[in-house]
Design a protein around this nucleic acid. Structure first.
Length: 270
DNA sequence: AGGTTGACCTGGACGC
DNA sequence: TGCGTCCAGGTCAACC
């Protein structure tokens, strides 16, 4: 389940391997749901373009392209199970492969996605994708506090709302709330300035540590090398239902908020 | 319009 | 063993 740290790790890995190369040809599967832009538009935008830079905005991998002085962007959202692999052409194509970009360096960039929650698209020329919300790693404190003002929804649900902050998913929302000592069920609009100050710091801390460790790997995430990350070893609450809190030994509770499983320590989080 | 819920998907875990 | 059921969750549409 790739969130911000995993997406950043993958984007960096892909950037290091393929930037500067030209896309010779593009193949796409016939699964409509995968393609947020029509496959023909994607093929047209990509073929013959040079890959200038691969980076991350929220949970989206952004591939900056240039061709005939017309910049374009190719967007890859990994959904739940999406993978971007840089492979030799003679490597067997895995099941559930939905796009293959043949590159001038001889390798292929492949998009593989079993569950098909991932999405591929291209942005209109002369626009730059900036994502739906604020960047968790760089958002200023006052802006962060403003995001949650008068929100009646639980803070957990607000953290998952990509139009407020983008890049935070279920794992890091639970982990950040634990480190900030905040119950996930508390109404976002009722959090104090001190709560939100701690929450922002906790978010930056858990995301930054996860990036340094190469992202979490709970089941499906694999980075561009095919090497799994290992941040799950550091999880304090996520997927630890019934296990003792690492701080106070209270069994971790699991509830559902906004249709998502939510884990917390009833002693450490108020 | 903000908030909430369910559909979309498949593989893996689990129970009988 | 093998089958059926349930669960995982990012996002979006639909509804309240």
């Amino acid at each position: 389940m790739p969130e911000l740290p995993e997406v950043e790790t993958i984007a960096n890995g892909v950037q290091a391997r393929i930037h500067g190369q030209t896309i010779r040809s593009v193949w796409t599967s016939n699964k409509p749901q995968t393609f947020k832009s029509p496959p023909d538009e994607i093929i047209e935008a990509l073929t013959g373009s040079r890959i200038e830079r691969v980076h991350r905005v929220g949970k989206t991998i952004v591939v900056d392209l240039s061709r005939r002085k017309k910049p374009a962007q190719f967007l890859v959202h990994l959904g739940m199970t999406g993978r971007l692999l840089v492979s030799a052409p003679d490597t067997p194509v895995p099941p559930h492969t939905h796009a293959i970009l043949a590159l001038s360096g001889g390798q292929e960039l492949r998009f593989v996605d079993a569950r098909r929650f991932g999405r591929l698209s291209v942005v209109a020329p002369d626009t730059r994708y900036e994502g739906p919300g604020a960047e968790p790693l760089t958002v200023a404190l006052e802006e962060f506090i403003g995001l949650f003002r008068n929100r009646k929804t639980p803070i957990k649900a607000a953290l998952l709302n990509q139009s407020l902050l983008h890049g935070v998913g279920n794992i890091y929302a639970d982990e950040a709330l634990f480190h900030a000592g905040i119950r996930p069920s508390r109404h976002a609009g009722r959090l104090t300035r001190a709560d939100l100050t701690r929450l922002r710091e906790a978010l930056i801390k858990v995301l930054t540590e996860a990036i340094q460790l190469g992202g979490s790997s709970v089941s499906d995430y694999v980075d561009a090398d095919g090497v799994a990350g290992f941040f799950q070893l550091h999880h304090h609450v996520y997927s630890r239902t019934g296990q003792p809190c690492r701080v106070c030994a209270t069994p971790i509770k699991r509830i559902v908020i906004g249709g998502r499983s939510t884990h917390y320590c009833s002693t450490c989080q108020k």
